[in-house]
Simulated assay, not measured.
Amino acid sequence: MTDSRVATAIAAAHTEGRGAFIGYLPLGYPDLDTSIEAAVTLAENGVDVLELGPPYSDPVMDGTVIQEATQAALAGGFRLRDTFTAVKAITQRVEVPVLVMTYWNPVMQYGVDRYADDLAAAGGAGLITPDITPDAAEEWIAASMRTGLDRIFLAAPTSTDERLDLIVEHSTGFVYTVSTMGITGERAQLDAAARTLVARLRERGVGNACVGIGISNAEQVAGVLDYADGAIVGTALVRALRDGGLESLAAEARSLSAGTAR
């Protein structure tokens, strides 16, 4: 992996004797301004890397809580260009690197080079692209190398060794390691497949493997960080924002962050 702001943030957490905490929120929920404040709130309450998701009309990976939030954001008038407005507003206020988690179709429609340029200009750190694989991402790889943005591809328990080799070779920042097959959301028990998958990625020389999907409390964060470099939490944070606003979100972030100590 090449040097990156995201990798630097993860390394800084490790230097402090803890794993990295990556927090996801949908942009535009419950409205654009509040989603900006929510991201800043996470950065100020223990999150090392922000993962922000522009709402998408067909979110194939998202569970019910996140789907409902993204549908509300779309109904509220969120537009793709609002992504860059939000990222700029957030990065002007916090040092935490900001990743955009986006399905590939909106990037293609916007223009890959234009998207990369506008994200870099807004201070964004890179993209998490759940539905495109490195072998189909030649244009994005070129654009991200030109702009210095991180490329974060997903590895799943079903990924072949050959696919994992490609993912490790072309990812920067970290590899998003999917703990269970299926949609995001909380799981009472995290799949042991995640541990096996991280071990397979380590055999292939991965720089950082961060595990997401199904992590919802500090105990699960600690369990994942027993073998992974970072823990990614989404649904629990979105629920906290939905049910109790920014104050509840801050408390939830601090609670989850307590699980990062090693």
Rank of each mutant, 00 (worst) to 15 (best):
R114H: 15
A136H: 03
T129F: 08
G126D: 06
A116Q: 14
D135I: 02
A121M: 00
L149I: 07
M145H: 11
L119C: 14
A136I: 00
T102V: 13
L164W: 12
S144I: 02
A121F: 01
G111E: 12
A125M: 04
A120C: 10
A136K: 03
F153I: 03
T160E: 03
Y115R: 08
L164Q: 09
D161R: 12
Y110S: 08
A137L: 03
F174Q: 05
M108P: 04
P130G: 12
I141R: 01
V112F: 07
N105F: 06
D131V: 13
L164V: 11
E139S: 06
P157I: 08
Q109I: 11
F174R: 05
T160S: 15
Y110G: 07
Y110H: 14
D150L: 03
S144Q: 10
M145F: 03
I132E: 09
A156W: 01
L119R: 15
G123D: 03
D165M: 04
T102D: 08
A116G: 13
T102L: 09
Y110A: 09
Y110P: 06
V175I: 13
L127R: 05
A116P: 14
Y115M: 14
G111I: 10
Y103G: 11
L164P: 11
D165C: 05
I152V: 15
E169W: 00
D131H: 13
L127A: 09
Y115D: 12
T158R: 04
A116T: 14
I141K: 00
L154K: 10
A122L: 00
D161W: 07
T133W: 05
M108S: 11
E169H: 02
T172I: 00
G173A: 07
Y103E: 09
A122P: 00
A137M: 04
R163F: 02
R151N: 09
R114Y: 11
D118G: 10
R151C: 04
W104Y: 15
W104F: 15
G124Y: 11
D131K: 13
